[in-house]
Amino acid sequence: MQKIIDQWPFFLGRQRSFVVFLIVVFFLLPGCTSFMITPMVSPVVKNLNRQADLELVCDGVPAYLLLLDSMLVSKPNNVTLLLHGTQAYTAYASLMPECGRPERAAVLGQRAKEYGLRLIGRQKSLAGAERLPLAGFSEALQSVGPGEVDKLFWGGYGWATWIGLSKGAPAAVVDLPKVEQLMLRVLALDETFYHGGAHLFLGIYYGSRPVMLGGRPEVSREHFERALVLGDRRFIPTLVAYAEYYARQTFDRELYVRLLNEALAFDLALAPDLTLPNVLAKRRAKKLLAQVEDVF
């Protein structure tokens, strides 16, 4: 499950610049926060994925997280801030092993879940989603319209981040079917959202488990193929996940090698707005390709 989350890291900016920004924020009146969200936070988020320097990401993210936490104290129900907070904590939690601090991942994952559930809970019928029975949760999702897709998708990923870092704890794993339902609802409303991200999630979800434990390899393949189409084969995490969670699970060596080689050959300049996730996916592809003789 941890690998489901690993496909979604993104970048913020230089740490020193954000520390200066934070000092300015602390001297502003709480009522001014709403005026800062779009002109000062959103442009940062817009350019997160364009960064290729992983060390800079690891050093810079904490200041951005502190900024978001501080702004959410004064605007706890602001949807834009909750979106950015969920995305940031989800990404940074899954980046911790790459940053050399794997022990921090679980703490960050807890915050990703907190913001994710608050985001989902902005839809009144889904308030207290964690406590709702699965049947009631699924029924409530049917009343959610297309305008809420971003909340469902990112809220689901924040929740899934915590589950993925729970190391199989029953209290966490029991929530997975709810995340599945969230992603299925995203597909029903807008399957194109975030490069077919719900298809990618479900491809991994159905492909990562043995058939006897609920795995559905052919359904997994269909989701991966659809995600590749929707992402125009430019979102490289899809290629790598397809290899790792379908081709390897079904012992399809030819597909495994072909997908990974396609990922490694991809020109990053063709998708500059996806530089960081694609760089990280290429790193993963290289490692997986080196294991081919051990796997098959």
Rank of each mutant, 00 (worst) to 15 (best):
H199L: 00
H223Q: 03
A290M: 05
R185I: 05
I5M: 07
N77S: 14
M183D: 11
R216T: 02
L65E: 11
A285K: 06
R122E: 15
G121L: 01
M212E: 13
V292R: 15
R233F: 06
I163T: 08
A129G: 08
A227S: 14
K286V: 01
A52R: 12
V44Q: 13
R209W: 04
Y89I: 03
P170I: 08
F235N: 10
K124F: 02
V57W: 09
N47P: 01
N47R: 13
E180F: 00
D273P: 01
R284G: 00
L95H: 09
F193L: 08
R104E: 15
S94D: 12
R216D: 14
L239S: 13
G168V: 02
I4W: 05
V186A: 09
K167R: 14
A135M: 01
F266T: 08
P146W: 01
G116C: 03
F296Y: 10
D267N: 15
G158F: 06
T90Y: 00
L67P: 00
F296S: 09
L152A: 01
A241D: 10
G215A: 07
F26T: 12
A160M: 02
E225F: 04
P237M: 10
A188M: 07
Q15F: 06
D175Q: 15
E139N: 05
E225V: 15
L22I: 07
M40L: 15
F193V: 05
W162V: 01
Q181G: 04
E244I: 02
L65C: 08
F251M: 11
G196K: 06
V211K: 08
L255K: 12
M40T: 10
S125T: 11
E139K: 11
G60R: 12
L83N: 10
A188P: 01
L134S: 12
A105Y: 00
V149A: 05
S42R: 09
R111E: 12
R122C: 11
A129S: 15
Y64I: 05
H84N: 14
I23V: 10
N261I: 04
L184P: 03
W159D: 06
V292K: 15
V174F: 00
L255D: 02
R226Y: 04
G197M: 02
V229L: 14
D59M: 02
C32A: 15
K75R: 14
Y245E: 06
D6F: 13
L12T: 10
L239V: 06
G121C: 03
A129T: 03
L288A: 01
L95C: 03
Q181K: 13
N49G: 15
A198H: 11
E55Q: 13
V229H: 07
F201P: 08
Y256V: 10
R283K: 13
P170G: 00
L202H: 07
G158D: 04
P237S: 12
A160C: 00
A140G: 09
Q123V: 11
F35A: 15
N47D: 14
T275A: 12
L82G: 00
W8H: 14
S166M: 03
R221L: 13
Q2N: 09
L274R: 06
A127S: 13
P30F: 04
L141A: 05
A243K: 09
M1Q: 10
G145T: 11
T38E: 14
L264K: 11
R216W: 03
L56V: 06
L189P: 11
T90I: 01
A171K: 05
H223M: 09
I4Y: 01
G156W: 03
E218P: 10
L68S: 00
R185T: 12
T38V: 14
A198R: 10
F153Q: 01
L176W: 04
A88Y: 08
